[in-house]
Amino acid sequence: MQEWMFLTNHAHVLLCVVRDPQARLRDVAEQVGITERAAQRIVADLVEAGYLERTRDGRRNRYRLHPDLPLRHPMDRDTAIGQLVALLTGIDIRSGDVA
């Protein structure tokens, strides 16, 4: 029987990036238990959807959360992504600056 989890890989990647905005995707992938390519696709999804903003900082990327965007599922549209992240991490995300 396959194990299941409450959070998706998208949520786990987002939480890793929030905790460390300069995280290497190789390290994020290892923490989440997915391939580096899968982590890259998930970050690209989060950037394309507007939840994350990616900027270059030297040789690394730096990520910034846009905390006011609503969750994607129709049942959850009244909850902002920042509220969920704050609940799961204990980090106050109101400003979007997570470092």
Rank of each mutant, 00 (worst) to 15 (best):
V85G: 02
V17N: 00
R19N: 14
R24G: 10
A39K: 06
L15A: 02
R37E: 05
V43E: 15
G50T: 12
L15Q: 02
Y63E: 00
V85F: 04
G90E: 02
R59V: 02
D78L: 03
W4A: 10
R62M: 04
L52D: 04
I91D: 00
Q40A: 09
I34M: 07
R24P: 00
L52R: 06
Q22D: 11
E30K: 15
M1D: 06
E48Q: 14
G96M: 04
I91R: 15
Q22I: 06
G58N: 12
Y51W: 10
V28R: 05
A29P: 09
Q31R: 15
R62E: 09
A11N: 11
L88K: 06
T35V: 07
D27K: 15
L25D: 12
R26E: 15
L87D: 15
T79W: 08
V18P: 02
R24S: 12
Q22S: 13
R94Y: 04
L71F: 03
A99P: 01
D78Y: 02
V28G: 05
L7G: 01
L87Y: 14
L46I: 10
G50N: 13
L52P: 06
L88V: 02
P74E: 14
G50Y: 11
P21S: 14
D78W: 01
D78R: 05
I93Q: 08
A80F: 06
V47K: 01
E53I: 13
V17W: 01
A44E: 15
A39W: 08
V17A: 10
V13Y: 04
V98C: 11
I42Q: 11
Q83V: 03
V98N: 13
A39P: 06
V43W: 04
L84T: 10
A49H: 10
